[in-house]
Amino acid sequence: MTRLELVAVGASWGGLRAIETVLGYLPEDFGAAVVIAQHRQSGGQEGMLEHLLDARCALTVSEAEDKQRLAPGAVLVAPADYHLLVERGAVSLSVDAPLHFSRPSIDVLLGSAADAYGAGTTGVLLTGANADGAVGLAKIAARGGTAIVQNPETAERREMPEAALWATPEARVLELEQIGPALVELAASSAGSLP
């Protein structure tokens, strides 16, 4: 099977707690890079989200800078008021117009992840109150990557996971607490397949 190289996560309303839960399960030696787009207010306290997450999980979490390298076990979060895009081996930022009123846009992040890493990508869509991310996640699935959606029934807000499932019916539906362990398993099984 294709090696898991990149985990791309999108979340909106209620996302901080959900992201924290998912990252909390990932060990320091997690074998894939992680990128996150969480809808956030521009002009909010800069770096707060990253500090919180960094303090509460084993991985290194930082706000993405342009052309920052992707590395296994390193988590890059989209800065407020920028789109975060994945290139092969690094990230880029853009100030293109907001999509669905959102910058960062989850569709932009997940779509670019699918372009850069194809089947080596796992997309994760968490709680949220809009439809951002559905198109991006479908693209990951279409390119042979893995699509994971938080169970809308138990998510803090169900709209975003529901929209994702409508666009990608074959996505794996997991409880929030199951997503981290599933990522660990994906990373481990794919690492084992290497010579």
Binding site: K67, L85, E87, S92, S94, D96, G111, S112, A116
Partner: peptide
Amino acid sequence: YAVASLRRR
């Protein structure tokens, strides 16, 4: 140019 943004545009 950076490919990801270019591709979108």
